[in-house]
Nucleic acid binder design. Structure first.
Lengths: 246, 246
DNA sequence: CGCCTAGTTGAAGTGTGTCAATGTCTGTGG
DNA sequence: CCACAGACATTGACACACTTCAACTAGGCG
């Protein structure tokens, strides 16, 4: 069964092996995602994009850095966060393949981006992207729809974080991750979480201790089981959905 | 001085008189707003837009309604909210002139919109807007930038609502309103709030009682003074900024 | 002028934050 | 491959802030 180890440091990010169970490959095409790029649009972008790779646990950019590029994630998971006063930190999102990275204001990134796994990105100079979007309005519409999608997600998250108790925030979070093949094994009914408890706590706007109690509660109520801190088995999906649906 | 009365029910929304003090006229052009439309772009939009007006305290649309139109606010204030379980409600925004109204998903509005004052809107059929945006990529870029702006605001709000105590959320809220000529009188240093305490509480994700205590605290600390529930005088701006800046 | 709604204030309950200690994993080096 | 160190995660006890429940006040509209 599961040995409960974390993902191997040198592993290719598209194949994460958890115990004996293999988590499927990530692919930009074929993900159950709204607003993804068509092949033609990807080719268009490829003309102005260059591929860059980052190792695990590296900073891509920090808030306040000059924003020269917009990134599209090809592979891996990126943590997007903002620093608050006195070492506090808010995690705004965990971005995965297909997501757009690099929200800026007045030429500066407003968030920091950090790789949780090895990551492959396509980056585009804002200047050339600007030109391309003006010349290809179908492509631009994709970006607009993607932005609208992000806006809906942000509003959703706002409601979850301000109105739901910790165990329901956690339920919502787990459901989110179950929607992504790379980190959900349907055979074992288990989710692999590629981030630490501190990351999740900062994402759900609670303390790590409170998060631990939320995990304990879901486990006590038979909703989940914990193999290891990062591998969670779903034991009662309908109850999880009941708790986690906004 | 101020008679502390609420805005007159039949008043034209572009001139709100508070006591002896007159609050300036609202205008789409000239507002200190990023991402506003140029005159040329407004003419473009005008071709497919029709002007509609709503009286005060009316529903424009409800969440779940078929989304046929996107709205641009010309005059007045619109409350955007989402219903939660059991009569609870979250207010996502108070929209003013220049704001885009009508975020939808799968052909349905995801929020409800309600007028707090008399409101003038321009509404555009999504179908014709879709066409227009594809044919005018400069205009589409405006919409994209506006969406990015909304996204930044949502992230900001997320941090305020999850990390700041009630009196600081209130400070942030008051500062927001001070940025808008229609509701801020520089001469008297006073802000007029066109919504009820319940609206503000639902926006700040606190109970009305907690909001009342937050008002009391800012007043006790000499930051504000209350003429009437809806008219607030700013007594210590730098402290308000200190408290309310994210 | 009086009723009804909106707003404020007080007192008690509850859940999350905080502080501290213990337990457990992970990734390193031998 | 194994063992160990340090980071990560969990659990318990207590404090405090917001919520809840209730009473009271004030303002606006009929």
């Amino acid at each position: 069964m599961s040995k409960g180890r974390a993902e191997p440091a040198g592993a290719s990010p598209e194949r994460l092996t958890i115990g004996a169970r293999r988590y499927g490959a990530a692919s930009v095409r074929g993900l159950p995602f709204a607003n993804l790029l068509t092949r033609k649009e990807q080719r268009e972008l490829a003309r102005i994009a260059e591929t860059v790779t980052y190792a695990r646990r590296q900073s891509i950019f920090k808030e306040g850095d000059r924003a020269d590029y917009l990134f599209v994630i090809e592979q891996g998971v990126v943590r997007v966060s903002r620093d608050l006063m006195e070492g506090e930190r808010h995690v705004l999102a965990f971005f995965r393949p297909g997501d757009l990275l690099g929200l800026a204001e007045e030429g500066r990134y407003i968030n920091s981006a950090y790789t949780l796994t090895a990551v492959t990105l396509r980056r585009m100079h804002l200047r050339s992207l600007h030109e391309l979007l003006l010349s290809d309005s179908q492509l631009q519409l994709r970006f607009l729809l993607k932005a609208a999608h992000e806006l809906r997600m942000a509003q959703r998250q706002l409601i979850v974080l301000t109105r739901k108790p910790p165990h329901q925030r956690l339920a919502t979070f787990l459901l989110n991750f179950m929607n992504h093949r790379e980190y959900f094994s349907a055979v074992e009914n288990s989710v692999y979480l590629p981030m630490t408890r501190d990351d999740i706590a900062d994402y759900l706007a609670i303390r790590p201790e409170t998060l631990a109690r939320a995990f304990a509660r879901l486990e006590r109520d038979g909703v989940i089981a914990r193999f290891s801190p990062r591998e969670i088995r779903i034991r009662n999906l309908s109850e999880l959905i009941h708790l986690g649906t906004v």
